[in-house]
Every structure is written in structure tokens, then in C-alpha cells.
Design a protein around this nucleic acid. Structure first.
Lengths: 242, 242
DNA sequence: CGAGGGTTTGAAGTGCATCAAATAGTGTGG
DNA sequence: CCACACTATTTGATGCACTTCAAACCCTCG
């Protein structure tokens, strides 16, 4: 992305589930002091437990949200891209971030005031309701993560991940996508080792004929993947929870 | 519990995180049409996807919240007892319950109107904030479940479960507790098979000297269990998320 | 071209699930 | 109070999926 400005930001921010349905002047209130910054790959936006003054809106790029255990292992909470908001839940966590955030591809990030958000939520039931709805959506995502962790095997988890990347509106039966970031990051997002990820991809290749070239993935018929992946799931494709 | 009445209910309900900080007349509004019922073990309170008119407050007993997958396996979402509210999130799920509920010990349950709750949330920012706080708490529980599922092994998961049952205010270094319900229910709550549960308990016995007699558990020094259990965790004991 | 990361492959080990069987525990009717 | 049936729990044996460690390979970029 090469050109952007406040209006571009405002347009996309207004569409986000957090603030949709608000009047324009209410939104203007919220974005009054927004700062838009280019941030480079590998930079840390904040660390878990940091004092939280801002929440963030991704205009472009990729951001990894993660935690670390005492023994140094990293657990990837989520990986977000354009149109996503993150860090806003700090207002329910004593104004501390519940995870760390690292830029993993050069990104354009809007910094928004948590204080303003907090004040508005405390008085505006519409925003509060939106916030609750987005919390509910997130909760359902997590529930399906739990389910997937416990009942899907590695190839199925990858299948599910790929299905979520597929354009739901596409007419074509074929899948042609590119993995959005490092394979080892995807692996960690799916809670498995890079080696397991690699072997699981190979299994998808032999079992349903999925073709893998570097980070490019091709499959002639999406239905094969659905049949292979979703048998174990309590929700049907497309996973309602996403 | 042998004696209870509306005032007893009101007292405890008022203390619940959902409605604390509300004025008395606001609470009276919410509990206007409450019904308090004795319900027997094994009865189903509602099924997932049922049309939701009520949310529930447990006055006494135990209730299992669960889901079923296509192949009939049961996943236990939670097991709740006195003082807990459940079913209230249906207002964000198109008025359908997101899980099924079964009474697992004879219980006393208050039936509360979801419609009233919904109306109040939509206009009263205080209640909305409380609701968000309780959603946040739940979210953190889930996050720690995800973490535990992927990082902790079976004995550690049991250890974590036991640590949560321990009275945090107790002065004593020793643990003396009784498992609150069927062992196989605990197993399912922790996402493992009854056989695995049994073997994992035995491992806790040989590794840190925990003594198990039926459903009674004794350990001379809680620190042993903390050392064994919490090494893998991103939060410290007592797990902040509970 | 060569260094260094990410990725793949191989071999071995671990943990949990599954199936089967033995044992303990609980409630029932006699 | 005992005998029986039924269920919950434990134990053993086996298999599978994933992890771990080690080495090879591949790709990119100086």
C-alpha cells in the first residue's frame, strides 16, 4: 500500500464491527487524536503487561499477537491483518495488554486512544453493545480453536486454516492461495511444530492431491478438502464461527 | 441446602459479578419474575440451540454445561455450582443457548428473564460494563484452557485443576480436598480419557507424593504441586485467569 | 560463491487413546 | 445384612500422532 490518509483510515475504521452503527460525530470523537504510522518488520509494538494507552487498527501489513511461557516458549494468540482491531481489550485488564504484539511484515498501523474508547463505552450503550458482539465473535473463535485443538489432527487443522483463507464468494471450485506468512508461523498459530506442519502438508498432498510449491497452494476441488477436514467438526463448513 | 427463599436468592444474586454495583431498584427490575426450582440429578435444563428465554443462577448443586460433536462425543464446557450464572450469553447468540445444560447433582436453580436482561443492558451502561467484565473473565478462562491443552500434559492439567479448588485464603501448606464430582466428569472437563486421568493421578502420587483415596486428595505441601504444575504456564500461580 | 536462515527428511522417543479385562464401589431387592 | 447387578475405576497391552533431535537440503542475499 502506497497511498493512505486520514479519510482512508476513517472509512475503513467506520466499517469495523467495533464502531459500525455509531453516528459520524461519535466516530469522530473516537478517532480525534489518531496517529498513523509506518512500522517495520520485526518491531515490537508492545509487550504483554505494558501499560496500555492505545488500541490499534491495521491499515496494512501483518501483526503477530503472542504470549511467552516461563520456559520461553511462544504461543501465538493470533495473526491479524488489514481491517483488524487489536489491543482494545486492555480496558478490561487494568489497562495492560494481555499479549505482546510484533510487526511481522512492514505495516501501517493506526494508534487510537484507549481512554476515549473507555469513556465512550461507559456512556454509550450502542458502542457497548458492539463491543459485546465483537467479544462474542472472538469467544466463538476461541471455542472452535479449543475444539480443533482437541479433535482435529494436524492435516485437518491445516485444512481448516486454508478453508478460512479461501474467498467465500469465489465461484470457482479450485483453490489457489498463498500462505500469508512464514510456514513456521502458521505452524505455531496452529499449535504444532514446523516439522509436523511440513509432514502434514505432504499428507494433504498424497491424500487429496493438494499441490504445494513453496508458499503457493493449489487444489482442483475445494470439496475434497472440506470432506477431509470438516468430518470431525461440530460446526459445518464454512465454520460458522469465523 | 434445605431452606431458601426469594431474599436468600436476591442476596446472593446481588453479589454476582453480573449485577454488582447496580442500584437496588435496578436489580429488582431484573429479578421481577424469577422462578426458583428444585431440579433432580440427570435432568436436562436445556439443549444447545434451544430457544432461550431464561438465564440461570445456581443456588445449590452442580450443573454441567456441554456440547456434542457430530460423532456424539461430549465436550464439557464447564461445570458450575452455587453463585454462578449461566446461559446469559444467549442474548448475543440470536437467543439460542450455545451449549446444553444438565443437572448432575440435585440442584436449586433460579430462572431469570433473558428479555429483561437484554433490555436493561441495551440502556444501562453499568450493567453493560459488568457484562463485559464477566465476558472478559470467561475469555481468559478459555485462553488458559487453550494454553493448557497445548502445553500441559495430563498430570499438570490435573494439578492445575486441583490448585484452583484450593482455598486461596487457607494458611496451611497442606492440601486436603475432595474431587467435586465424578472422576470421569473431571477427566472430560480436562479433555482426557478416564483411563488417562487415573494414570495421571497415579503419576502425581509417585512424582510428588500426592495421596489419593477415592475422591479425597491429600498433599503435605502445596508448593510441590505448584512447582510440578505451573512451570509450563504463561501465568503464575495462582493462575490469574481464574 | 558461500553463509545463514527456513524447510524438509529421517529416526527414535513420548504421551495419550483405545480396547480389553480385572477390580472396586454402589445401590437394589431379598 | 447379604447377595447380586450394575457402574465406575483401575490396570495392562498395543497403536498412532506428534515431538524431539539430527542432518540434509534449499533458497535468498550479501
Amino acid at each position: 500500500m502506497t497511498n493512505f490518509n486520514i479519510d482512508y483510515f476513517k472509512h475503513h475504521y467506520s466499517l469495523s464491527s467495533l464502531v459500525q452503527c455509531l453516528e459520524e460525530d461519535e466516530i469522530n470523537q473516537l478517532i480525534d487524536q489518531v496517529a498513523i504510522k509506518n512500522i517495520r518488520k520485526h518491531e515490537l509494538l508492545f509487550l504483554r503487561e505494558d501499560n496500555a494507552d492505545h488500541y490499534f487498527f491495521v491499515l496494512d501489513g501483518w501483526v503477530k499477537l503472542f504470549r511467552e511461557t516461563l520456559d520461553g516458549t511462544q504461543a501465538v494468540v493470533d495473526i491479524v491483518t488489514s481491517g483488524h482491531i487489536f489491543g482494545e481489550t486492555a480496558i478490561f485488564e487494568d489497562d495492560r495488554y494481555p499479549y505482546s504484539a510484533e510487526i511481522i511484515e512492514d505495516s501501517i498501523i493506526a494508534f487510537l486512544s484507549l481512554r476515549k474508547l473507555k469513556n465512550t463505552i461507559e456512556t454509550n450503550p450502542k458502542l457497548a453493545l458492539n463491543m459485546m458482539h465483537s467479544m462474542t465473535r472472538y469467544r466463538k473463535q476461541q471455542e472452535s480453536s479449543i475444539e480443533h485443538l482437541s479433535i482435529q489432527n494436524a492435516p485437518q487443522r491445516i485444512g481448516c486454516f486454508i478453508l478460512k483463507l479461501v474467498d467465500k464468494n469465489s465461484e470457482s471450485k479450485a483453490i489457489n492461495i498463498e500462505l500469508p506468512y512464514d510456514k513456521s508461523l502458521v505452524a505455531s498459530r496452529l499449535g504444532m511444530q514446523p516439522e509436523t506442519f511440513s509432514r502434514a502438508l505432504k499428507k494433504l498432498s498424497t491424500e487429496i492431491g493438494m499441490q504445494i510449491k513453496g508458499s503457493k497452494i493449489h487444489l482442483d476441488d475445494i470439496q475434497k478438502l472440506i470432506d477431509y477436514t470438516c468430518v470431525a467438526c461440530s460446526s459445518e463448513f464454512p465454520c460458522k464461527d469465523y
